[in-house]
């Protein structure tokens, strides 16, 4: 079985700027894959190369085994892309746009599927509205629908939830999850890390055109073995050796301390008791993807 997406030593420069500096990546069929990274890391550039919108300076990309330059037609048939930019054709209504998009993929009479997609994205009531008259979030939904008209086995979403309200966000993720359960491979970029944590099975983190972390979401979270304690104490001073520990002072006077493991919670408590300091409030939390992300980007 060929990989859904195979990226092999991709370089891309814009003039003197190295937007991608040697990316290699395998995404298997059926995966829910996250592509994370700060602004300008090269996520959209990588997606554009996968989609054939941009040519790589060097390297090879295959989608479902088809080279995106040599066998561009087969590769593009296998791929649906939701672009990051909010683009639309002002000459058409939602339904017209979806019919035309189906036609580009060689599909006639796609009505049943178009209706279904519009239903899932809550677009049915806007079906005959001109694209120009839609709100930003609505236009985003149409972009998602346009990427799905040909039921592509591989779906790439470049920040699909930017500027989208909570309700659609949830509806969209339900729909995308269902597509993933039905066997579609999903690749996603987002700056909402809790979304990525909840949805993605595997994650690549990009920084300045290079992959700086690539692992299952669980392994990434486990990398960070410790936990955090947030507490408020009376009198308001940390006892003994703890005073020199790296702590963050939160608004409202609470301390936030990074601990190596749960055993350290014990010793912290003992130290507080010994110094007759009372705990007024306390919470122990596990690190989330955001913490991991920040650490990976720092190193």
């Amino acid at each position: 079985m060929s990989a859904a997406i195979e990226v092999d030593r991709i370089f891309k420069s814009f003039g003197g700027l190295h937007a991608l500096a040697g990316i290699s990546l395998m995404i298997e069929q059926g995966e829910f894959f996250g592509l994370l990274g700060p602004n300008g890391a090269g996520k959209t550039t990588l997606i554009s190369i996968i989609a054939g919108l941009t040519r790589a300076t060097s390297g090879i990309v295959r989608v479902m085994g088809h080279d995106v330059v040599q066998s561009y037609r087969a590769a593009r048939r296998s791929l649906g892309v939701v672009p990051q930019e909010l683009v639309f054709d002002p000459f058409f209504t939602v339904r017209e746009a979806l019919r035309i998009q189906s036609g580009y993929y060689g599909i006639r009479n796609n009505e049943a599927w178009i209706e279904e997609v519009m239903e899932h994205l809550d677009l049915t009531s806007k079906a005959d509205t001109n694209m120009r008259a839609l709100s930003g979030g609505m236009k985003r939904r149409v972009l998602v629908a346009q990427a799905l008209v040909h039921k592509p086995p591989v779906i790439v979403l470049d920040e699909p939830t930017a500027g989208v309200d909570v309700e659609l966000r949830q509806a969209l993720w339900r729909f995308v999850r269902q597509l993933n359960l039905d066997g579609h491979t999903i690749v996603l970029t987002t700056h909402y890390l809790e979304e990525a944590e909840a949805l993605c099975g595997r994650i690549a983190m990009l920084k300045q055109g290079q992959i700086v972390a690539l692992d299952t979401t669980q392994n990434l979270l486990n990398r960070h073995s410790g936990c955090y304690v947030t507490l408020r104490i009376e009198p308001d001073r940390m006892p003994g050796a703890w005073a020199s520990r790296l702590t963050t002072r939160l608004e409202g006077g609470a301390y936030r301390i990074a601990l190596k493991d749960y055993d350290e919670v014990e010793s912290l408590m003992a130290a507080l008791r010994a110094a007759h300091i009372k705990v007024q409030e306390m919470e122990v939390t596990l690190p989330d993807l955001e913490e991991v992300f920040v650490q990976v980007m720092k190193s």
Partner: peptide, 14 residues
Amino acid sequence: MTGNIVFVLLPPLS
């Protein structure tokens, strides 16, 4: 200019 050229660049048109 508007960017909607992607709609014809993404599909498998020869």
